[in-house]
Amino acid sequence: LVATIRALKMHGGVRVRDVAQPNPEAVTKGLENLAKHMENIEKFGMKSIVAINRFPTDTLEELEIVKDFVISSGSQASIVDYHAKGGAGGLELAEQVVSMVDKEECRYHGLYDWNSSVEDKVFTVASKIYGAQAVDYTTEAKADLRRINKYGFDKLPICIAKTQKSLSDNPDLIGRPKDFLVTVREIVIANGAGFLVPITGEIMRMPGLPKKPSAETIDVEDDGNISGLF
Protein backbone atom coordinates (compact mmCIF):
# COMPACT_ATOMS: atom_id res chain seq x y z
CA LEU A 1 0.00 0.00 0.00
CA VAL A 2 1.69 3.22 -1.18
CA ALA A 3 1.23 6.39 0.86
CA THR A 4 2.67 9.87 0.47
CA ILE A 5 2.97 12.70 2.95
CA ARG A 6 1.54 15.05 0.31
CA ALA A 7 -1.65 13.00 -0.12
CA LEU A 8 -2.13 12.67 3.63
CA LYS A 9 -1.83 16.43 4.00
CA MET A 10 -4.50 16.87 1.35
CA HIS A 11 -6.80 14.51 3.25
CA GLY A 12 -5.95 16.51 6.35
CA GLY A 13 -7.41 19.64 4.74
CA VAL A 14 -4.37 21.24 3.12
CA ARG A 15 -4.81 22.81 -0.31
CA VAL A 16 -2.90 21.07 -3.11
CA ARG A 17 -0.68 24.10 -3.72
CA ASP A 18 0.46 24.01 -0.08
CA VAL A 19 1.25 20.30 0.35
CA ALA A 20 5.00 20.91 0.03
CA GLN A 21 4.98 22.98 3.22
CA PRO A 22 5.71 21.19 6.54
CA ASN A 23 2.48 20.43 8.38
CA PRO A 24 2.66 17.48 10.79
CA GLU A 25 -0.80 18.30 12.18
CA ALA A 26 -2.40 17.85 8.75
CA VAL A 27 -0.48 14.60 8.23
CA THR A 28 -1.86 13.28 11.51
CA LYS A 29 -5.39 14.33 10.57
CA GLY A 30 -5.08 12.64 7.18
CA LEU A 31 -4.12 9.29 8.70
CA GLU A 32 -7.79 8.33 8.94
CA ASN A 33 -7.78 7.95 5.16
CA LEU A 34 -4.74 5.65 5.28
CA ALA A 35 -6.35 3.65 8.09
CA LYS A 36 -9.40 2.99 5.92
CA HIS A 37 -7.24 1.69 3.06
CA MET A 38 -5.41 -0.61 5.48
CA GLU A 39 -8.73 -1.92 6.78
CA ASN A 40 -9.92 -2.50 3.22
CA ILE A 41 -6.94 -4.72 2.45
CA GLU A 42 -7.77 -6.88 5.48
CA LYS A 43 -11.30 -7.40 4.10
CA PHE A 44 -9.70 -9.52 1.36
CA GLY A 45 -7.82 -11.70 3.84
CA MET A 46 -4.57 -9.87 3.18
CA LYS A 47 -2.09 -7.91 5.28
CA SER A 48 -0.69 -4.54 4.30
CA ILE A 49 2.86 -3.28 4.09
CA VAL A 50 2.82 0.49 3.75
CA ALA A 51 5.44 1.98 1.44
CA ILE A 52 5.86 5.65 2.35
CA ASN A 53 6.98 7.18 -0.93
CA ARG A 54 9.40 9.91 0.10
CA PHE A 55 9.45 13.35 -1.53
CA PRO A 56 12.25 15.93 -1.07
CA THR A 57 9.85 18.24 0.80
CA ASP A 58 8.90 15.62 3.41
CA THR A 59 10.27 16.24 6.89
CA LEU A 60 11.61 13.48 9.11
CA GLU A 61 8.92 14.29 11.68
CA GLU A 62 6.15 13.81 9.10
CA LEU A 63 7.63 10.53 7.87
CA GLU A 64 7.97 9.18 11.40
CA ILE A 65 4.36 10.13 12.22
CA VAL A 66 3.12 7.89 9.41
CA LYS A 67 5.55 5.05 10.10
CA ASP A 68 4.74 5.01 13.82
CA PHE A 69 1.00 5.02 13.08
CA VAL A 70 1.25 2.06 10.72
CA ILE A 71 3.38 0.03 13.12
CA SER A 72 1.07 0.82 16.05
CA SER A 73 -1.82 -0.43 13.89
CA GLY A 74 -0.14 -3.83 13.57
CA SER A 75 1.25 -3.48 10.04
CA GLN A 76 4.72 -2.97 8.62
CA ALA A 77 5.97 0.26 7.08
CA SER A 78 9.01 1.32 5.10
CA ILE A 79 10.16 4.75 3.94
CA VAL A 80 11.13 4.27 0.29
CA ASP A 81 13.34 6.63 -1.68
CA TYR A 82 13.66 5.16 -5.18
CA HIS A 83 13.89 8.55 -6.86
CA ALA A 84 17.03 9.62 -5.01
CA LYS A 85 18.67 6.25 -4.33
CA GLY A 86 17.41 3.94 -7.05
CA GLY A 87 16.91 0.30 -6.09
CA ALA A 88 18.80 0.79 -2.83
CA GLY A 89 16.01 3.10 -1.69
CA GLY A 90 13.57 0.20 -1.58
CA LEU A 91 15.60 -2.68 -0.14
CA GLU A 92 13.87 -2.64 3.23
CA LEU A 93 10.46 -2.74 1.55
CA ALA A 94 11.53 -5.64 -0.69
CA GLU A 95 12.76 -7.59 2.32
CA GLN A 96 9.47 -7.02 4.15
CA VAL A 97 7.46 -8.25 1.17
CA VAL A 98 9.61 -11.37 0.71
CA SER A 99 9.36 -12.15 4.42
CA MET A 100 5.57 -11.85 4.40
CA VAL A 101 5.28 -14.08 1.32
CA ASP A 102 7.56 -16.70 2.87
CA LYS A 103 5.44 -16.82 6.02
CA GLU A 104 2.31 -17.52 3.93
CA GLU A 105 0.13 -15.62 6.40
CA CYS A 106 -2.25 -14.19 3.80
CA ARG A 107 -5.21 -16.06 2.35
CA TYR A 108 -6.94 -14.00 -0.31
CA HIS A 109 -10.70 -14.18 -0.70
CA GLY A 110 -13.07 -12.10 -2.78
CA LEU A 111 -15.41 -9.48 -1.41
CA TYR A 112 -18.59 -10.73 -3.07
CA ASP A 113 -20.13 -13.67 -4.92
CA TRP A 114 -19.95 -13.16 -8.69
CA ASN A 115 -23.41 -14.75 -8.95
CA SER A 116 -24.94 -11.93 -6.91
CA SER A 117 -26.91 -9.25 -8.73
CA VAL A 118 -25.02 -6.31 -10.19
CA GLU A 119 -26.73 -4.00 -7.70
CA ASP A 120 -25.62 -6.17 -4.76
CA LYS A 121 -22.03 -6.27 -6.01
CA VAL A 122 -21.92 -2.50 -6.44
CA PHE A 123 -23.43 -1.91 -3.01
CA THR A 124 -20.98 -4.34 -1.39
CA VAL A 125 -18.00 -2.42 -2.76
CA ALA A 126 -19.56 1.00 -2.11
CA SER A 127 -20.49 0.21 1.49
CA LYS A 128 -17.61 -2.00 2.63
CA ILE A 129 -14.73 -0.38 0.74
CA TYR A 130 -15.82 3.25 0.30
CA GLY A 131 -18.04 3.67 3.38
CA ALA A 132 -21.20 4.64 1.48
CA GLN A 133 -24.68 4.35 2.94
CA ALA A 134 -26.54 3.87 -0.34
CA VAL A 135 -26.16 3.68 -4.12
CA ASP A 136 -28.34 5.54 -6.60
CA TYR A 137 -28.67 4.87 -10.34
CA THR A 138 -29.42 7.39 -13.06
CA THR A 139 -32.02 6.62 -15.72
CA GLU A 140 -29.20 5.71 -18.12
CA ALA A 141 -27.60 3.36 -15.59
CA LYS A 142 -30.94 1.62 -14.98
CA ALA A 143 -31.29 1.07 -18.72
CA ASP A 144 -27.77 -0.38 -18.75
CA LEU A 145 -28.76 -2.76 -15.96
CA ARG A 146 -31.73 -4.02 -17.93
CA ARG A 147 -29.53 -4.65 -20.98
CA ILE A 148 -26.88 -6.39 -18.86
CA ASN A 149 -29.46 -8.71 -17.32
CA LYS A 150 -31.14 -9.37 -20.65
CA TYR A 151 -27.95 -10.56 -22.34
CA GLY A 152 -26.58 -12.50 -19.38
CA PHE A 153 -23.67 -10.28 -18.39
CA ASP A 154 -24.91 -9.87 -14.81
CA LYS A 155 -22.59 -12.59 -13.43
CA LEU A 156 -19.45 -10.69 -14.41
CA PRO A 157 -17.36 -9.06 -11.65
CA ILE A 158 -17.32 -5.27 -11.41
CA CYS A 159 -14.62 -2.62 -11.67
CA ILE A 160 -16.02 0.69 -10.43
CA ALA A 161 -14.65 3.85 -12.03
CA LYS A 162 -14.56 6.88 -9.74
CA THR A 163 -12.41 9.79 -8.64
CA GLN A 164 -9.04 8.92 -7.11
CA LYS A 165 -9.21 11.97 -4.84
CA SER A 166 -11.74 10.59 -2.37
CA LEU A 167 -13.07 7.34 -0.95
CA SER A 168 -16.42 8.58 -2.26
CA ASP A 169 -17.43 9.58 -5.79
CA ASN A 170 -17.15 13.24 -4.76
CA PRO A 171 -13.56 14.58 -4.95
CA ASP A 172 -14.37 17.21 -2.32
CA LEU A 173 -15.09 14.62 0.40
CA ILE A 174 -11.59 14.20 1.81
CA GLY A 175 -10.37 12.15 4.76
CA ARG A 176 -12.68 9.31 5.69
CA PRO A 177 -16.23 10.28 4.71
CA LYS A 178 -19.08 8.11 5.96
CA ASP A 179 -22.73 7.41 5.10
CA PHE A 180 -22.67 9.22 1.76
CA LEU A 181 -24.52 8.46 -1.47
CA VAL A 182 -22.75 6.98 -4.50
CA THR A 183 -24.36 7.71 -7.87
CA VAL A 184 -23.82 5.34 -10.79
CA ARG A 185 -24.16 7.30 -14.05
CA GLU A 186 -23.78 4.41 -16.48
CA ILE A 187 -22.47 0.85 -16.65
CA VAL A 188 -20.12 -0.19 -19.44
CA ILE A 189 -19.83 -3.83 -20.50
CA ALA A 190 -16.14 -4.69 -20.94
CA ASN A 191 -16.91 -8.12 -22.33
CA GLY A 192 -13.45 -8.77 -23.74
CA ALA A 193 -11.83 -8.02 -20.39
CA GLY A 194 -14.56 -9.91 -18.56
CA PHE A 195 -16.02 -7.32 -16.20
CA LEU A 196 -18.58 -4.54 -15.86
CA VAL A 197 -17.57 -0.91 -15.31
CA PRO A 198 -20.05 1.10 -13.22
CA ILE A 199 -19.07 4.75 -13.76
CA THR A 200 -19.64 7.11 -10.84
CA GLY A 201 -19.34 10.86 -10.48
CA GLU A 202 -17.84 13.23 -13.03
CA ILE A 203 -14.54 11.68 -14.12
CA MET A 204 -12.32 11.37 -17.17
CA ARG A 205 -11.72 7.66 -17.73
CA MET A 206 -8.80 8.08 -20.13
CA PRO A 207 -6.57 11.14 -19.67
CA GLY A 208 -5.97 13.09 -22.85
CA LEU A 209 -2.51 13.54 -24.33
CA PRO A 210 -0.93 16.87 -25.31
CA LYS A 211 -0.21 17.60 -28.97
CA LYS A 212 3.37 16.46 -28.40
CA PRO A 213 3.40 13.52 -25.93
CA SER A 214 6.52 13.09 -23.78
CA ALA A 215 7.04 9.64 -25.33
CA GLU A 216 8.19 11.34 -28.53
CA THR A 217 11.29 12.70 -26.77
CA ILE A 218 12.23 9.56 -24.83
CA ASP A 219 14.98 7.39 -26.28
CA VAL A 220 17.51 4.72 -25.29
CA GLU A 221 21.07 5.73 -26.15
CA ASP A 222 23.74 3.35 -27.47
CA ASP A 223 25.31 3.11 -24.00
CA GLY A 224 21.99 2.05 -22.46
CA ASN A 225 21.12 5.36 -20.82
CA ILE A 226 17.56 6.62 -21.18
CA SER A 227 17.21 10.22 -22.32
CA GLY A 228 14.26 12.58 -22.52
CA LEU A 229 12.55 11.59 -19.27
CA PHE A 230 12.78 15.09 -17.79
Rank of each mutant, 00 (worst) to 15 (best):
R6P: 02
R6Y: 08
R6C: 10
M10C: 13
M10E: 15
G12A: 00
V14E: 10
V16L: 15
V16T: 14
R17A: 15
R17W: 03
N23K: 12
N23L: 00
A26E: 01
V27C: 02
V27P: 12
T28V: 07
T28M: 04
K29E: 12
L31Y: 12
E32V: 15
L34P: 00
A35V: 03
K36C: 00
M38V: 13
E39P: 03
E39W: 09
N40A: 12
E42G: 10
F44H: 05
F44A: 15
G45D: 09
M46H: 05
K47A: 13
I49G: 04
V50G: 04
V50D: 09
N53D: 09
R54A: 05
T57P: 06
T57C: 12
T57I: 10
D58L: 10
D58I: 15
L60M: 11
E62D: 09
L63N: 11
E64P: 04
I65S: 10
I65D: 05
V66P: 10
F69P: 02
I71F: 04
I71M: 09
S75W: 14
S75Y: 07
Q76C: 07
Q76N: 14
Q76E: 13
H83F: 03
K85W: 00
G86I: 13
G90C: 06
G90I: 07
L91G: 07
L91A: 15
L93K: 01
V97A: 14
M100Y: 00
V101C: 13
D102C: 06
K103D: 00
L111D: 14
L111S: 15
D113S: 11
D113R: 08
S117R: 11
S117Y: 11
V118T: 10
D120V: 04
F123L: 14
A126L: 02
I129Y: 04
Q133I: 00
V135L: 10
V135Y: 11
T138M: 01
T139V: 03
E140N: 05
E140Q: 10
A141T: 05
K142A: 08
A143Y: 05
L145Q: 08
I148T: 09
I148A: 10
N149K: 08
K150N: 01
Y151A: 02
F153Y: 12
L156R: 07
P157N: 12
A161L: 02
K162Q: 11
Q164D: 13
S168N: 12
S168P: 11
D169T: 14
D169Q: 10
P171R: 11
I174N: 07
P177I: 11
D179M: 04
F180C: 12
L181P: 13
V182Q: 01
V182I: 05
V184Q: 03
V184Y: 06
I187W: 14
I187N: 09
V188K: 07
V188I: 06
A190L: 15
N191Y: 04
L196S: 07
P198C: 00
I199T: 07
E202P: 03
E202S: 14
I203Y: 07
P207S: 06
P207Q: 00
P210Q: 06
P210M: 08
P213I: 00
P213A: 01
P213R: 11
P213G: 11
P213S: 13
A215I: 02
T217F: 06
T217R: 15
T217D: 14
I218N: 11
D222V: 12
D222M: 05
N225K: 13
N225Q: 14
N225L: 04
I226F: 00
G228I: 09
L229F: 09
